[in-house]
Write a protein that binds this DNA or RNA. Sequence first.
DNA 1: TAGATTGTTAATCGATTAACAATC
DNA 2: TAGATTGTTAATCGATTAACAATC
Lengths: 211, 211
Amino acid sequence: MAKKHNIPVETIKRTITYIRYLEREKQKGVKIISSRDITSLLNIPPAQFRKDLSFFGEFGKRGVGYNVDILIETLKQLLGLDRKVKAIVVGAGRLGTALVQYPGFLEINVEIIGAFDNDSKKIGQSIKGIDIYDIKNIKKFIIKNNVKIALLCVPSDSAQIVANILIEAGIKSILNFAPVVLILPEGINIANVDMASEIGSIIYRMKETVQ
Amino acid sequence: MAKKHNIPVETIKRTITYIRYLEREKQKGVKIISSRDITSLLNIPPAQFRKDLSFFGEFGKRGVGYNVDILIETLKQLLGLDRKVKAIVVGAGRLGTALVQYPGFLEINVEIIGAFDNDSKKIGQSIKGIDIYDIKNIKKFIIKNNVKIALLCVPSDSAQIVANILIEAGIKSILNFAPVVLILPEGINIANVDMASEIGSIIYRMKETVQ
DNA sequence: TAGATTGTTAATCGATTAACAATC
DNA sequence: TAGATTGTTAATCGATTAACAATC
């Protein structure tokens, strides 16, 4: 029975990993795959894969496994990754310009269509065909191109201010790379990529295991 | 009573956020802070802050709050962030070179001391004073400098192979930016920064809330 | 002392894992 | 049919939140 809603965030993230690995198996010519086979590649228990899928519906054949092609297509559709999704990068520093051409986004159909900055030296330049625009013109751009997602790569000091501008301009979702907690209105989606706290947690674990 | 071990990963990550915000309050001249005041900046319940701290020990004064200076120093020490920690970047592409100068690492005392690549065009160059070395010489470098942490920014195809080389060379912890699941021996610490699955989860949530 | 805030216990909530009936 | 594997229920595990006694 197809359920909906209240799907755990971790289930969603794992599902994207499933799609990636299913694509790779498809490349190798695999047509049918079992929960045991796919999870052995991912270092997770088979039950978790089946449980995760059960949030979306039923996709397998008992005694047989899952049709790789159909599973890929269905999962992509359910997550909204079956069509190109446009996004912009805000803050065209080292990190921002790296994200403009990050291949992992293309894999899931996310396309960066522009970058923004307030530095006149950067405005007008382009990276791999993606232009850097003046942040002053961001609202026009967002409306014209119907962009809903922004990757926020500005310095910590200005992250909240720029986030406010983005929302004012019509952005609905922010992937935040600045190590600050953004305060945002209801209805805005936020995910934080906090590289420093990831590395910090590694340092702590190392301390524990070495001692 | 000071406990240890089995501290949840999420508690560790939040603790790093606490340190960052305590530093900022310290800059503003705040000497004493309550769980309510700090968590109001972080959008989390005060009880979570106190619960998190309780994994490490007792640091506050009832009826008063926490001494900002002492709390910062103690938490840093407990996490192993009170002294400089050396790390290397492996894969000197766009993302790798961005990480070399990422200011968020310095904030928590992590210092990138070198970058490695197998591309002869990159080897010998330097970014902000950090040299790019031939990956062939990585083992010597790691031993000589006693490096334990690597930031892995190579293409997905080679991530597992390069990870094996790193471990062989003596690396104990890997922060992996490639969208693959690495299979590693017991005792090696791993954290994954999966930007694509973060953005994918945002797309799904947007789909749900808009409909 | 009275008011405030901690540290911790207990209750709640949610996610993971195990087990197994359903069924291909 | 016999063997295999799914989908789901129930059990377990862990994390978050609420409540409050301790105490500054």
